[in-house]
Design a protein around this nucleic acid. Sequence first.
DNA 1: CGGTACGATAGAACAACGTTCGATACAGTG
DNA 2: CACTGTATCGAACGTTGTTCTATCGTACCG
Lengths: 235, 235
Amino acid sequence: MAHLQNRPGPGQGRRRASHSMESVLTEAVALLDEAGAPALTFRALAQRLGGGVASIYWYVANKEELLDRATDHVIGTVLAEIEALPGSDDPIDDLRAMAVTLFDAILDRPWLGAYFMRNTDVQGNSLRLYEKLGRQTLRLDLNALQRFHAVSAVVGVVVGSAVDMGQEPPEEVLDGSVNRDEYLGRYAQTWRELDPEAYPFVHEIVDEFDGHDDVDQFRSALDLTLAGLRLQSGA
Amino acid sequence: MAHLQNRPGPGQGRRRASHSMESVLTEAVALLDEAGAPALTFRALAQRLGGGVASIYWYVANKEELLDRATDHVIGTVLAEIEALPGSDDPIDDLRAMAVTLFDAILDRPWLGAYFMRNTDVQGNSLRLYEKLGRQTLRLDLNALQRFHAVSAVVGVVVGSAVDMGQEPPEEVLDGSVNRDEYLGRYAQTWRELDPEAYPFVHEIVDEFDGHDDVDQFRSALDLTLAGLRLQSGA
DNA sequence: CGGTACGATAGAACAACGTTCGATACAGTG
DNA sequence: CACTGTATCGAACGTTGTTCTATCGTACCG
């Protein structure tokens, strides 16, 4: 009889898996870290948790919520790093240190760039981070609107840079057959072959582009914004 | 006999559709414009073209290429707008005008934000746009590295702001049951209910956030970066 | 102790998607 | 007429997010 299945004893047969919100989020983040956003599927996650696919739906309503919770999870650790920052007497320097910390976290986890700031959800760690950044502007001589725009600008610079480098490398560098510098070099070479009259700027910066560092690029963009902010605050 | 199907005459039966690269791209963009990125599927596009699904694969290798070509297609029109700009004696003002033009185009087509700058592909319109922006920095007293970073920063601000507003509104505003201001108002309300001691900054700017304009937010971020750039160029 | 409600798990199925395959039509050329 | 290359299309495949329904196991209660 089909319904008289032999029950699996506690050491043989299939055990029922027992999860928790924590374990679901941890394994989800692990999948994202190991192979990026496309690797996080409900089936892969279920297998990793040693359970069934539908079980995950008891913890999250859908994939969007899974992504939201996973990002919020790691933003929590970033927030802890930021709160552990020493702090100085210059609010703009502190703002810079926080932005750099955030950017470094995104460099470690490129998938974060795409999903960060997707939800400034109430009570989330993103909001706490937003507050942390904004509190520095309270030390500056600005009005409320300027403060609002200043924090948006800083976050914008981080996200803008992160999105740029968050895109998946085109597989020949992923499988290691070509490293990043080599890839950049090929790109630079095609640029060098363009007509110098039609593309004077591209020729001007191609040597800088070749083998450039993403962190330098971000730091420069951030410094420009912060310089403008310092000017605006009259300090 | 099954193989002796009656041929469809020119006026009855199923006609074979005849496409072109242009029509494929145009209809793809139309789908994106009407209902965003998720609306662009091979089946929807095929139906719109009055043909079969597999036919599209004669023009593009896969969806990534379809997106790339569609994006490049509209960037072409943006490029035309930018080239039609009057121009002034201040390179930074010109840079601002170009960035604003680009941003406006993304406001019209929110899906553009996510795919723009995904390929600075050789010979693409993105590269031409990049060149156009960079040429303004040639008029500034900067070195090559500074010029490279300056253009990256400006593009970063545009992308960063665009990503922020490129995310789909959460369906209650999409179906028109709640408009954007109402939605922002609700959000602001939950922020107002937070502990003022724990969230002093959020309380400071909540009135500015409520009913804020995305364009103002972008312009402010852009102005900060350009102010920093002007400072750096010593003008 | 037996029953029952509920928290939690899981297999199977569904629809939609990107993609591939094989067959077929059409136009031009010999 | 046959041949060839361009262009088209229906059907199928594998994978994805999601839902349905059935089940397990434990805590509580009579």
